[in-house]
């Protein structure tokens, strides 16, 4: 029996899917912002040269990089409320879990970027009498940030893909809304294919844009 495609079902559920996409982007942006902040703190702790700061940061980074994001999500949503006595919304839980998870990866991007700045730059800055914070702010970070852009972008894309896991907490992002649409229409092939296409268009389109921006950034430094 030849399968009868019916893409009108996608058209009918498109508003639902686009609402889901908006939620996907909202969760992504929130978690990227959270991850960048947490990552910077972790990286500075790790590079501080003080053991009591560096070791906890290393433990957090290594733990979150070696455990599945889905476990983080479930732990924050189901287990953390028992400890803190406050129930979390699916959005709050997903954002918190993904922020820390991506923060662990962002921390390594920051660190690699900072370490990649040549010793001569540190020395040139110190030789004109800059204090450590000034060296970091005026010379090391501006140079490092440029080099961090490509790995940051890559990580951010990973994070957008990871937000799909929030569907398992019944957070109404794109995949979850697709599941709702499938349960109403019994058309998994059309709808899940449409979801894949939407993700692909957003991520691949964004990656093309970012590639152009990175090219331009590279040209500025030369």
């Amino acid at each position: 029996m030849e399968y009868q495609w019916d893409f009108s079902v996608v058209a009918r559920h498109l508003p639902l899917l686009l609402e889901g996409l908006a939620q996907t982007l909202r969760l992504s942006l929130a978690a990227i912002a959270g991850g960048l902040a947490i990552g910077l703190v972790l990286a500075l702790m790790r590079l501080s040269g003080r053991r009591w700061l560096a070791w906890p940061a290393i433990a957090v980074i290594e733990f979150f990089r070696a455990t599945p994001p889905l476990v983080h999500l479930f732990w924050v949503f189901y287990a953390l409320p028992i400890l803190i006595g406050v129930n979390l919304s699916p959005f709050a839980a997903a954002m918190l879990a993904l922020s820390v998870q991506s923060g662990a990866f962002f921390a390594e991007v920051y660190r690699a970027g900072i370490v990649s700045v040549e010793r001569g730059q540190w020395e040139g800055a110190r030789a004109i009498g800059m204090r450590p914070a000034q060296v970091m702010r005026r010379v090391v970070l501006p140079l490092a940030l440029r080099r961090m852009v490509p790995p940051f972008v890559e990580r951010a894309f990973e994070l957008v893909k990871t937000t799909a896991l929030a569907a398992t907490l019944a957070y109404g992002e794109l995949l979850y809304q697709a599941m709702v649409a499938v349960s109403r229409s019994y058309r998994p092939l059309e709808i899940y294919s449409a979801v894949a296409v939407i993700f692909f268009l957003v991520l691949f389109g964004a990656s093309l844009v970012m590639r152009r921006i990175e090219d331009r950034l590279r040209r500025v430094e030369r």
């Binding site: 001569g120 040139g124 800055a125 030789a127 010379v139 501006p142 140079l143 440029r146």
Partner: peptide, 13 residues
């Protein structure tokens, strides 16, 4: 105390 380096160490940005 000013210092001038073998590798210049100018800030490229």
């Amino acid at each position: 105390i000013g210092m001038v380096f073998q590798q210049f160490n100018l800030f490229p940005h």
